[in-house]
Amino acid sequence: MTAMPTGAPAGNPVRPGRAWTMVERNLMIYRHTWPVLLAEIFEPMLYLLAFGVGVGLLVGDVPGLGASVSYPQFVAPALLATAAMNGAMNETTFNMYGKLTTDKTYESILTTPMSVRSVALGEVFWALVRGAIVATVFLVVVSIFGLAELPGALLVIPSALLIGFAFAAMGLLTVTFLRSWQDFQLIQLVMLPMFLFATTFFPLSVYPRAVQVFVEVLPLYHSVELVRAAFLGTGGGYPAIAVIYLAVLGVVALAIAVRRLEDTLRP
């Protein structure tokens, strides 16, 4: 018979769990399911091929951005920003909702010294790790095709991380309000138009002023501006506003989300 726990507390090297262990859990899972990540990288590539190259052949350069910017150059950063957004949102909405409801994953994690805050931060960390991988691969590919100016375009990586943080936190907040799987339709109802109109495929100047104001409030618009500035080496003072906007959005959403999760997970 194997010797089993004797209940001796002395020297038990147990300490409160940390957020990083949530990333370890996800890495463990992705050892089995890494093709999922590949799909996430391919999606923006396909968009780039269809819209950037395909539509690009029809429209030529994009007006109103100073130096001549080809259509693929215009669309590529927007697609990267969108990929960073979607990757992060999916992680903290879709994946997390399953773990909160069907799988009860968090219920068992929270019987350990892990706190709700560690779990929430850990899932956001993981969304960032994923986002960094997707952004890096995308950047490498578009650089090979000459769509991004290295080394300046390396700023894309921290930009993608910031975007990932803001949307992971927003996703975390959103998931605390979901009542059923049907509610994901509502998320799509917001995300898809935002993807289509937040200067992803055409510049802000095409809209009348009233619509411009509306677009300028969208978080994806600021994300696109941020990545586009890094890609094209333009920007001036503008990215500062985007950085502050996304950082504040992320921190506020995260703070509220952690409090709401505390109520859900420790009733």
Partner: peptide, 25 residues
């Protein structure tokens, strides 16, 4: 717990390993 809350995305041994990590082991 009353309902099994095993991590279905992991193998049997991985379940034990990651759970121990939550304790900082």
């Amino acid at each position: 717990p009353q309902d099994d809350t095993i991590d279905t995305e992991l193998t049997v041994r991985e379940n034990l390993l990651i759970y121990g990590r939550y304790f900082g082991l």
